[in-house]
Design a protein around this nucleic acid. Structure first.
Length: 433
RNA sequence: CGGGGCGUGGCGCAGUCUGGUUAGCGCACCAGUUUUGGGAACUGGGGGCCGGAAGUUCGAAUCUUCUCGCCCCGACCA
């Protein structure tokens, strides 16, 4: 029908009959935790090597939705997106002495000229090098740069699928301020932005006090998604909302008094670290001689901050928090599709036509919709839709033949509604919002 | 890096202890027919050098040695 061949191709990947999404009834044995099992079963990821994964169309789409939310919130606070190299020269790392300190986690190699490089596990050196010669005046500050990029850390023991991979996707920001006061403002702004991001991901999280000593005498906070498989222990006080990571504050026990309000109701839970913000101060700018000219005409090292979000890890964390025995329960914000239109009997021309039309109408209304036009039985379609976790399932089936009605099932609540075919678009719009 | 476990069609497994027809089962895949509201049924079919190497033996998925890969616990994780 469409005169544009390209449009047809784009649309065709939103049909189950064309979608590359190999789902599995059983989880591969290697997968221990639920998020790993479900992502494998739902055809979102596949392992390539230990701690290294490929993202299939659905997995990649989820990642992109995650990125989009992060971008929006970063841009709102005036951070600017850049893209730094993944392969980084040893000379930069030698300036901060991390070439020696970082250890085996840094994956090193040499090029044909025998120059040493590593795959970037983090980018303080690269970003500091980028700005040190061209960010010159206090008048330009503050500047906040971020990127969303693949990182590589050669962990001794990668585990739990995307939770602790060697290769993973990370959003990292670096801020440059003129003084401590300004850095403090940037730091608070970023914490607030992070809170909005994790709220939009639909997860229950805590902002916890983290190590403040080793990096340069200022503060650090971690964003923890609460989950049983979390590798960190979080202690929190219900009286004053104080929370801390016990791996860092080893002396803090559930029976201790709250260091913030002296209350005696501390409790311990497990958490997955999905974000970490630091005040770096002048740690890197001093070592790398990255200075700007201040009001008094004299050079000063930048006051730096760095702010990370484990993008691929947060996807796993969301699943850990939101699933049931049938599969994943995505919030609308991250779901690979918002709606799936299921044709109960594809061979029935009336149903097929109706499903096709509803799919196109929903798409025109702006919904992110998948059409299940496969010849599988309706039971099979239900199982896959539940596993993948599409929030709204619309069934074009026998009610349609009888009374022009379709059934709408909500994945999160299990609520089922039968309504007239023509009312579906507006109903879906109110659900998605 | 210490300890433990596992490698058999794409996935899940049996067979290994006690060597012996043609390596088997479920799912998935292909063809056909009948099906279609919660992972349909039947019939027929394709796909494996049992992780790799060396050895013992008339004979190795099975025993021995080495090696590679993967998973779990711990240590480690700006």
């Amino acid at each position: 029908m469409s005169p544009n061949i390209l449009d047809d191709k784009i649309i065709s990947i939103m049909r189950v009959s064309q979608l590359y999404c190999p789902t599995l009834k059983e989880a591969p044995r290697e997968a221990e935790v639920i998020s790993h099992q479900l992502m494998l079963r739902a055809g979102m990821i596949r392992k390539s090597a230990a701690g290294i994964y490929s993202y299939l169309p659905l997995g990649y789409k989820i990642l992109r939705k995650c990125e989009a939310i992060i971008r929006e919130e970063m841009n709102v606070v005036g951070a600017q997106e850049v893209h730094l190299p993944m392969v980084t020269a040893s000379s930069l790392w030698q300036e901060t002495e991390r070439w020696d300190k970082y250890g085996k986690e840094l994956l090193r190699f040499t090029d044909r000229h025998n120059n040493e490089f590593c795959l970037g596990p983090t980018h303080e050196e690269v970003i500091t090098d980028l700005v040190r010669n061209e960010l010159r005046s206090y008048k330009q500050l503050p500047v906040n740069l971020y990127q969303i990029q693949t990182k590589f850390r050669d962990e001794t023991r990668p585990r739990f699928g995307l939770m602790r991979g060697r290769e993973f996707l990370m959003k990292d920001s670096y801020s440059f301020d003129a003084d401590e006061e300004s850095l403090a403002e940037t730091y608070i702004t970023m914490i607030e932005a992070y809170k909005r991001i994790f709220k939009r991901f639909g997860v229950e999280f805590r902002v916890v006090e983290a190590d403040s000593g080793s990096i340069g005498g200022s503060s650090s906070a971690e964003f923890m998604v609460l989950a049983d498989v979390g590798e960190d222990l979080v202690i929190e006080c219900p009286d004053c909302m104080y929370a801390a990571n016990t791996e860092i504050f080893g002396d803090l026990k559930p029976e201790s008094l709250c260091p913030s309000c002296n209350g005696a109701n501390l409790s311990e839970t497990r958490g997955i670290e999905v974000g970490h913000v630091f005040k770096l101060g002048q740690e890197y700018s001093k070592k790398m001689k990255a200075t700007f000219v201040d009001k008094d005409g004299r050079p000063k090292p930048f006051m730096m901050g760095c702010y990370g979000i484990g993008v691929s890890r947060v996807v796993a964390a969301v699943i850990e928090q939101s699933h049931d025995h049938k599969g994943i329960k995505w919030p609308f914000s991250l779901a690979p599709f918002e709606v799936v239109v299921m044709i109960s009997k594809t061979k029935d021309e009336v149903l097929y036509e109706a499903g096709e039309r509803l799919y196109k109408d929903l798409q025109a209304s702006g919904a992110d919709v998948l059409l299940d036009d496969s010849s599988d039985s309706i039971g099979f379609k239900f199982k896959d839709a539940d596993l993948i976790g599409i929030p709204i399932q619309v069934v074009v089936g026998r009610q349609f033949l009888e009374s022009q009605e379709v059934e709408i099932i909500q994945r999160l609540t299990g609520e089922k509604t039968v309504m007239s075919y023509k009312d579906v678009i507006s109903y879906v719009q109110t659900l998605v919002k």
